[in-house]
Nucleic acid binder design. Structure first.
Lengths: 333, 333
DNA sequence: CTGTTAGCGCTTTCAG
DNA sequence: CTGAAAGCGCTAACAG
């Protein structure tokens, strides 16, 4: 039989209140009493029933994690997911919180109701852009305990961590331009950021074409083949999905196009060093998914503790270009 | 203020027992009464406090997931982890269970005590080989609600799902032999399976060398260079870590060795189709991580429901070779 | 410093 | 079919 706090109290000859005190280090207990209680705990191999504990305290010490679906698969880009996840887990572990993964198939309104309102979780982190989630904005407006990743168009409320997508896209394209590229193509996962290209193209002899990432690898390979078979093919390619860099390289290879001599390439890595194993080593922009996860969890916990006054805040993380060998310098055209 | 079951009972003019009955569809309730109660629930926007619910029922409807550390990173091989995870999540979602991720940094004995015994979770799935976890065997011997993945040397107790590592290593090496390869090298993540090689080498003019995967990519590349620079270099390579297939290909490429003309290659994919994006498409053994996750969760839930009589059972999943273009057929040497 | 005791919100006998 | 009431195991005033 599993021991309860009553058993411990009886064996130690004290009240349950005292046992509870030593369990939670709350209030003063005489060293002598404490020793007796601890001994009893050990003898009975007692550990508090966390269901009862959570109930009495009305808190679960659990935070929820939900990952909106993206094109690639249920968890989106693999490394982004695992790294973000690791980050959350890291800080939760330190604070003795648990992480509850919530199936994103559920309706978001229900999730809020069933998990947050029912106190199954104390807070929620949304691991990627929540734009598509119905009820999301309402929840944020009600100042629910939510932290999300990314930026929602035309909506700057709520606590969110942001890897500054716009900025790093700009930096990357700028980097190509600075290195002499005039015909650049960009395959991205988000909306077409017209404004960025406009700035870079403005008054210069620069062409930047944007394409939304294809659904399938085959489709992507087809598009690449067509695009890079032309006479006036691009000399620089910003290809966001690192997941697909190998099929991409294979395709380029098939076209007898060498990186970086014929085409300069930049991708995105969510885990530092991913580009380094390739030959040539791939110049990547490093998007710190791990740090984002940590930050998101940190902010959420702080918010729960009342340590954050302003609910509408954006926490920026810096994404940096890691220069390796896949971009040719001083391209002349 | 958040409504409780009392508020609902009062508003509906019934007892809390009745409200509870309609909430849980337990026991008979007159249609008329039910309608009234439901209306009250809606009016108050009530949803049961799951902390109280769990406490009263003494069950959390949550299962824990822990992933032992492996060489690569906190979550081991990326796709294996995410796919396994997706699998668990899939069946839990259907059964309205939640998934609690448990930090593997904790001591395993404590995990059992704090999570399982304290009823924070009803069961535990261990996502990879638990050999190194202190206290694991004891927990299994006590028939705790645990399902693990893999096989533990010299220990065949407990509920476990197994992708039949030995079998697919054998099949893979056999496949090389059948295709005329006589000098084969195998880079693996586990212990040296001497017996397998012995069978294949026996009486034939076949050499199979086994190496444990290197800690770093650089180290691996160095070893590959040395190994494949020799005159009597291997013609076939079974390289388990698909994560590193690109650095490997780059290295081979640097040595002017073509796949499959110069070296035939087989790797392992944990998500179906991973090898298809490459040129040439990589022949892989498909280890069904997603199905493993599903099976593990299924078995655990069945065990919790008393639907599994024999606690010591191995559930095999089939790993199959997906023939693509990275193995040359009829190699003559 | 310690004990008494009233909950926490829901489930579940047990009567009726 | 419905209600009364006794818990579930722990926490946290409050009183001493």
């Amino acid at each position: 039989m599993i021991a309860t706090i009553y058993d411990v109290a009886k064996l130690a000859g004290v009240s349950t209140a005292t046992v509870s005190r030593v369990l939670n280090r709350t209030g003063k207990v005489a060293p002598k009493t404490e020793a007796i209680v601890k001994k009893a705990i050990e003898q009975l191999n007692f550990s508090p029933n966390s269901l009862a504990q959570n109930f009495a305290k009305m808190r679960s010490r659990t935070i929820g994690f939900i990952f909106p679906n993206t094109i690639n698969n249920d968890f989106g880009e693999n490394f982004y997911f695992t790294e973000f996840f690791r980050g959350i887990n890291k800080v939760l572990g330190q604070e003795e919180y648990s992480l509850l993964l919530i199936n994103s198939k559920n309706n978001f309104v229900n999730i809020i109701h069933e998990f947050l309102d029912q106190r199954k979780i104390e807070g929620l982190v949304i691991g990627a852009n929540p734009s598509d989630m119905e009820g999301f904005k309402e929840a944020v407006i009600q100042k629910k305990s939510i932290v999300y990743a990314g930026q929602v168009e035309g909506f700057d409320l709520g606590l969110h961590v942001y890897a500054q997508y716009n900025e790093y896209v700009y930096k990357t394209l700028q980097y190509f331009v600075d290195n002499g590229h005039r015909n650049i193509v960009h395959f991205g996962n988000y909306e077409n950021k017209m404004a960025i290209r406009d700035i870079l193209q403005d008054g210069k002899n620069v062409i930047i074409n944007y394409y939304k990432e294809s659904d399938t690898i085959e489709e992507m390979q087809e598009r690449i083949k067509i695009m890079f078979s032309k006479k006036d093919r691009p000399t620089a390619l910003f290809y966001e999905s690192f997941d697909r860099i190998q099929p991409l390289l294979s395709t380029l290879n098939e076209l007898n196009l060498k990186v970086p001599e014929d085409v300069s390439l930049i991708s995105v890595e969510h885990k530092k060093g991913l580009g380094a194993g390739y030959i040539p080593q791939i110049t990547n922009v490093y998007v710190p998914a791990y740090e984002m996860g940590k930050k998101a969890a940190r902010v959420l916990l702080d918010y729960l503790n009342g340590d954050i006054e302003e609910y509408n805040q954006q926490f920026n993380l810096e994404s940096v270009i890691i220069e390796r060998d896949s971009v040719i310098k001083g391209a002349v055209h």
